[in-house]
């Protein structure tokens, strides 16, 4: 049990409805023929709107190598937008965002029959708190006080093997990492099987100066955390989006995947 004294000191209490958000979006094709990433924002331009109904951002990475990646990511986005507009803000928002991914997955599955899929990072900012859910290998970062914190985990074979190895008492990280299928997803919207969804059981209270970055692996898998951290230190989301784009163009990765980044700064 926390004492009253501890509770007052905890950064996890209280909310400050004076926070304002600045939002930026960035999307590029990379070296791909098609854009299979989709994203959406809601209430990003109106403080009145986001105070009342929350600010929503969502990134979906349609699966390349499978047919109809764009159909998958767009179907997921449309479904998640409906989840957002039907949110009960007085209820458990994190769980609703998690359930939203299951609903979106069912829709994608019904359209593509397991032949395509999409990742999702789905975030709602409400009353100075961040709620999110995620499936697949897209990224969600929180930049706070000079540190970059990864908020979600990639649902891929590599991570699954790590967990299996730890459970079996082996701590060799190289085996799973070197597996040819290390990056294969173990959970995504539209999968014909048991979906793993992560969601925030407790919201993350936001502070002035925080920046939230949601991005597809075309960003998160290409730019290291050190590079991202340096860019996020700039603070201005518009400039950060430009920096991310420039960094990706500079690296000139062969086969650069589609890339999408959504940035929200709190001030």
């Amino acid at each position: 049990m926390l004492s009253d004294n501890q509770r007052t000191l905890s950064p996890l209490t209280g909310f400050d409805d004076s926070l304002q958000y600045q939002v930026a979006n960035l999307q590029g094709l990379g070296r791909r023929q098609r854009q299979e990433d989709s994203f959406t924002l809601a209430n990003a331009l109106s403080r009145e709107q986001y105070l009342k109904s929350g600010l929503m951002i969502c990134v979906c990475d349609g699966m390349g190598g499978m047919k109809d990646g764009k159909v998958a990511s767009e179907t997921a986005i449309a479904s998640l937008r409906r989840t957002f507009s039907a949110l009960d803000l007085s209820g458990n928002i994190g769980r609703q965002l998690g359930n939203g991914l299951y609903a979106a997955s069912d829709e994608v599955l019904s359209i593509l029959g397991g032949g395509g899929g999409s990742t999702a990072v789905f975030c709602v900012f409400y009353q100075d708190k961040l709620y999110f859910s995620s499936a697949g290998d897209s990224f969600l970062y929180l930049y706070r006080g000079g540190r970059l914190i990864r908020l979600n985990v990639e649902h891929n074979l590599c991570n699954q093997r790590y967990l299996e190895n730890i459970r079996d008492g082996e701590l060799d990280i190289n085996g799973p990492r070197e597996d040819a299928e290390a990056q294969a997803l173990t959970s995504f919207l539209g999968m014909d099987g048991e979906l793993t969804v992560d969601y925030s059981a407790h919201p993350i209270p936001l502070r002035r100066g925080d920046i939230v970055l949601a991005c597809s692996d075309g960003v998160g898998g290409v730019l290291g955390e050190g590079a991202l951290l340096t860019m996020l230190e700039g603070g201005n989301v518009q400039e950060i989006a430009k920096d991310i784009d420039e960094a990706i163009q500079t690296i000139q990765k062969p086969n650069q995947d589609n890339y999408t980044a959504l940035l929200v700064s709190c001030y």
Binding site: Q20, Y21, Q22, V23, A24, N25, L26, Q27, G28, L29, R34, Q35, F39, A44, L45, S46, R47, Y50, K70, N236, V237, Q238, A241, K242, D245, Q249, L263
Partner: peptide
């Protein structure tokens, strides 16, 4: 431009303060 899926690189940012409709 995003709805078309055609643009190569697009990058726009918004501030809630300057973002009038």
């Amino acid at each position: 431009p995003y709805c078309s899926g055609g643009a190569n690189v697009i990058n726009f940012a918004a501030s809630s303060e300057v973002g009038k409709t």
